[in-house]
Nucleic acid binder design. Structure first.
Length: 260
DNA sequence: ATGGCTTCATAGTGAAGA
């Protein structure tokens, strides 16, 4: 089973890239973030024409998440139960016995911002909820844009980013809390190339200069992590004309989610 | 250099992203 995540920064603008990418990589599931469109404008016909089902939770201008899948999704659910939030940032669904949770974790803007406080509260609510979800679904994958670079090696210039939003200690601690409830960062289960980041600023030629951060992740419960055979960042779409500022992350899990 | 670039909503510029 091949599962992936990609912050597309406007599904309307990036639809051609997404369709090309699906055709090339044929993932069993692709989680998308920052759709930036209302559900009534979701390009369902184009996605279905590409051979994929879709569940989505969108809103005007900001946020918005979707899960695309080759096989139909079951038990689709939006948001974190019991956590009031107008921002569409979470979508869950089951695919052949694997619980997929697609997240667009708040950016936080800066550590002295009210949005940063919202981010930390949001992460706490996510961890509380996921603890029970992992118990309920032993095979659970948490995929998305976390807006957290977990360690210094996930940052091109750790000194410059020290204490800044995306890299601050409270955010990194929140990431470790997710790991403590049994979710493993499968990217780190394998040797990785230098400069394998997932986001590069649009400005200052950041991509060409390799000035990136790894903030998009796939975390797997123990039952999935033990069967994970690869996890890579695909930087190719970042080289295209009018790219998303994020690159997709792909994990492959042997045996999981196969129909028999 | 609180800039740089891209998107959306809007019809000038401003908010937000990370």
């Amino acid at each position: 089973m091949k599962i992936a995540t990609w912050n597309v920064n406007s599904l309307k603008v990036r639809l051609p890239h997404v369709l090309d990418w699906l055709s090339l990589h044929q993932p069993d599931a692709l989680c998308l973030q920052e759709l930036k469109l209302e559900d009534k404008n979701f390009p369902l016909a184009e996605i279905e024409a590409a051979g994929y089902h879709a569940a989505f939770s969108g809103q005007k201008t900001y946020n918005g998440v979707a899960i695309l899948s080759k096989q139909p999704l079951q038990d689709v659910s939006a948001g974190i139960p019991g956590y009031e939030d107008d921002q569409k940032r979470v979508l869950s669904a089951t695919l052949n016995g694997v619980r997929l949770v697609c997240v667009y974790i708040p950016n936080g803007q800066s550590v002295d911002s009210g949005k940063y406080q919202y981010k930390l509260g949001w992460l706490e609510a996510l961890a509380v909820w996921l603890k029970s979800e992992v118990a309920r679904y032993p095979k659970l994958a948490l995929l998305g844009d976390y807006n957290v670079a977990p360690e210094d090696r996930d940052v091109h210039d750790p000194k410059a980013w020290e204490g800044q939003v995306l890299c601050s200690e409270p955010e990194r601690e929140a990431f470790r809390v997710l790991q403590k409830i049994g979710l493993q960062d499968c990217f780190r289960l394998f040797p990785q190339a230098e400069g394998a980041f997932t986001w590069w600023d649009y400005r200052m030629n950041a991509f060409r200069r390799k000035l990136g951060l790894r903030i998009d992740h796939i975390l797997l419960s123990d039952a999935l992590a033990s069967d994970c055979v690869s996890c890579v960042v695909d930087m190719e779409p970042r080289k295209l004309e009018r790219p998303s500022d994020h690159a997709p992350v792909i994990a492959e899990i042997s045996h999981a989610g196969e129909t028999h």
